[in-house]
Each structure stands twice: as C-alpha cells, then as structure tokens.
Write a protein that binds this DNA or RNA. Structure first.
Lengths: 103, 103
DNA sequence: GGGGATGGTCATAAATTTCTGACTTATTGC
DNA sequence: GCAATAAGTCAGAAATTTATGACCATCCCC
C-alpha cells in the first residue's frame, strides 16, 4: 500500500509537467539561448548575468533529463562540451512563438 | 542612474514572463481547473489536495494580476466569489493543448 | 612544465516559497 | 440569536531553491 504524497501536486495534465520543468530562475533563459545556437557551460556563466555554476549545472542537467537539451562532447582541437537543442526542444519553439503573440 | 539588479533574469523574450507567472506549486493546477469551470476559493482548498489558504490566495491574486483570471462577486442568494478565466486565459488553452501533443 | 581555461562537484549559507494555525468580517440557514 | 460557511489576512516556522567559495581533473598553449 502506498501513501500518496499530498504535498506534491497531482498532475492531471501533461503540459503541467513541462511547465514545471521549465520553471526555475534561469531555465527559460538557458532554453532561449539554446534555441539561438549550441551553448557551453562557461559561456553561459558569462552570458547569464548573476547566475552561478551550481544552479546552471543543475538546470542543464534537468533540461537534459526532460529531453530538451543534449550534451555533446566535441572531440575536436579545443576539446569541449556543447549542449544542443533536441528535436523535442525545437518542436517547442513555434509554440512559444505563438505564446508571444498572446501575452 | 539606475543600478540593474543582476540577481534577476533580464527577460529578452515575452514568453518568459508568462512562464514565470505560471510557475509556482499550484498555479498550473488552478489554471487547469479554471479552464473547466469557474472556481471558488473554498472549493479549491478542498479540491487541491495538500494546498493551503495562504498560497492559494496569493496564487489567485497573481493569476488575476497577469490577467488570466478575474474575480467576480456573485450577488445572488448565496452571495459568493468566483474566479473566471479571462479572454486572455482562454486564448492560452489551444496553445497548451498543442503542448500536450509534443510532451 | 607552468599558467590559464573548461567543466564541473561539494558543503554550506542565504534567499525565496510554501505551510501552519490563529484570527477576522460578512452572510446564511435553522 | 447561533453556529456554520465563505473568503480571506497575518505572523512565524518549515521547506525548497539559489548562491558562494573552495576545490579538482583535463586539456591546451608557450
């Protein structure tokens, strides 16, 4: 027998999960930047004014987990890591653009 | 001269404001319920398991402020208050439905 | 081989959000 | 008139999120 955790909202609607996944101080901004071009950890830290490693690292991890970003190791000369928007991430773009028309 | 508050994200994209407005533990669920039918404070408190007056009250106030809900005093026999979805609120519904297809 | 950049992690601290319980005013049914 | 319901507010506590600063392993350039 399971005791439901009533302190957590029960999600009836799938869009609520996404809303929750994109909530957080920097996630929307990270997502927006990722739409423009692949992003890198250290650049983000410089681009997003007022942010910090810890939170960015966690945010990237979460955006990865929900399948909006994917971590790509670039095995080129200056070996580095990039985060790319996934297909799912790209599919959200037109929806957000629509939103902008409404807001 | 103004010193920008760097601790706060600078919003480049209008959709980010909406995202932020709809973030919070119970706001998405309140919105969803309001889409179904007008909502009342005390019913919400019973419907949304684990919620509390304080937070619901604040959430309703905020959803009102951003123009998604409007407070309506029903001057009928059992005089009471209802929160109705505004036109803007209704216009978000198809967007969220689209989102459900993606998620 | 030394110094800097990249991409992190960890423990702790500070800030923000949410929750609890007491209290309030007005209305309504009996 | 009296108790219950509705719709809150308020102060303080608890929980959750963010931020800080220290630290670490690679890699890359000179």
């Amino acid at each position: 027998m399971t005791i439901p955790d009533l302190a957590q909202p029960t999600e009836t609607c799938p869009a609520q999960g996404l809303l929750k996944s994109l909530s957080g101080k920097w996630k929307p901004e990270i997502f927006r930047l990722a739409v423009e071009s692949p992003i890198r950890f250290s650049s983000l830290l410089r681009q997003i004014n007022g942010s910090n490693k810890q939170t960015l690292s966690l945010a990237l991890k979460e955006l990865e987990e929900i399948g909006l970003l994917e971590k790509v190791v670039i095995k080129q000369k200056p070996l580095h890591i990039e985060y790319h928007l996934t297909a799912k991430g790209r599919s959200l773009v037109p929806v957000f653009l629509q939103l902008e028309g409404i807001v």
